[in-house]
């Protein structure tokens, strides 16, 4: 028995381990972003409902969304939504086609790349609105 045979099981398990790999991280991120977006949605329906009560009240409520801290919160919210959207498309593809389930790892990096592209397009404009006078 040599070191060669001892190291063999490692090679056997490679690629079949779920934990710590792309599959796990996409699942964890999908869940965390989904829960975060859900709680914002609850608040967002309620804050928008004040538009029915009184124009001044609605404007006062909306003013709280225009502060620097909330502006950063909105950036995080959009980041979560864009990830959840693209990763959701990846899930649909993986469920529907054999090609996508073979290439689900590559697709996850595709999701991250698309997410980065959209955030690069969105962030400067949003931060300019929030911080630029």
């Amino acid at each position: 028995m040599s070191a060669k045979t001892a190291s063999k099981p490692k090679t056997v398990f490679r690629g079949t381990l779920y934990r710590g790999h792309e599959g796990m991280w996409s699942w964890v991120l999908h869940r965390i972003t989904g829960i975060a977006i859900y709680f914002f949605l609850l608040v967002h329906v309620l804050d928008t409902a004040t538009v029915r009560l009184d124009p001044e009240l609605y404007n006062a409520v909306m003013a709280s969304y225009k502060t620097p801290i909330m502006g950063l919160g909105e950036a995080a919210l959009v980041a979560a939504i864009v990830f959840h959207a693209f990763n959701g498309l990846r899930i649909i593809l993986v469920d529907m086609t054999a090609w996508a389930s073979r290439h689900h790892r590559a697709l996850f990096y595709g999701v991250l790349a698309l997410w980065a592209l959209v955030m690069i397009a969105f962030l400067p404009r949003h931060l300019m609105h929030v911080f630029g006078g």
């Binding site: 538009v51 001044e56 909306m62 969304y65 609105h129 929030v130």
Partner: peptide
């Protein structure tokens, strides 16, 4: 104006 333009 983005978020700053949202009002009644």
């Amino acid at each position: 104006g983005g978020v700053k333009a949202i009002d009644f």
